[in-house]
Amino acid sequence: MKAAHGRLISEEGLRHDGRRPDEHRPVKMEVGVLSNADGSAMVEFGRTKVLAAVYGPREPPQRFMLLPDRAILRVRYHMAPFSTSDRKSPAPSRREVELSKVIREALEPVVISELYPRTAIDVFVEVLQADGGTRTAGVTAASLALADAGIPMRALVAGVAVGKVDGVLVLDVDEVEDSAGEADLPVAGAPDLGLITLLQLNGVLSEEEFEQALDMAWRAIEDLVRQEKEVLRRKYQGVSRA
């Protein structure tokens, strides 16, 4: 649908929804939103709404999967059929299979899995409404849900996607910008460790643009992790007062 959109950056340098290029959509984070899960979180980036739940460490249904020296991580990224403008079939698509893998690999470096050998830690990410940035909102929600479940972690992770529209690098692309844009760079990382744990690029960037985009993403990730800590602190302060 590339031709259907006009200019996505206005004369004043603002985006189609009025944001500045380096402005994130309004972010909402909440933990402990589900009663059965050991940990859970809801994260919203604008209209994108993602729910994550963590179960475990627990015995997996198939014991042959177990590793003797660490817990395995099992991660599913899944989109609700009503999350997109055309109904999404609930059967896992190739895209969901790939995103489950990259989200798992974004979490593996921070989960201290060696504390729980012969167990599984399950992370379920459900996209309830998709408006761009679902995998990065998913990583952010998963990080919060893991912390909420009390799983020991080296650091918290968060993610954001930087795009390029009308030749301008923009933070936290929504669906309009993603489908019309020239590039999409989803990044997740653990700022407290200085480590990138998810990095993909779909589109064309020069080396200079890549560096600028990565810096832009990194500042946003630092800010998102600050917000994660704040949300978790609020919950546990509430517990200690009760």
């Binding site: 990259v102 470096p109 990138i196 990095l199 690029l201 589109g203």
Partner: peptide, 20 residues
Amino acid sequence: GRIVGLQKSGEGAITREEAR
């Protein structure tokens, strides 16, 4: 000579300097 795709694959992580 343009970068037309990236994919981090595997359990580990990299620093920004390593990415560059």
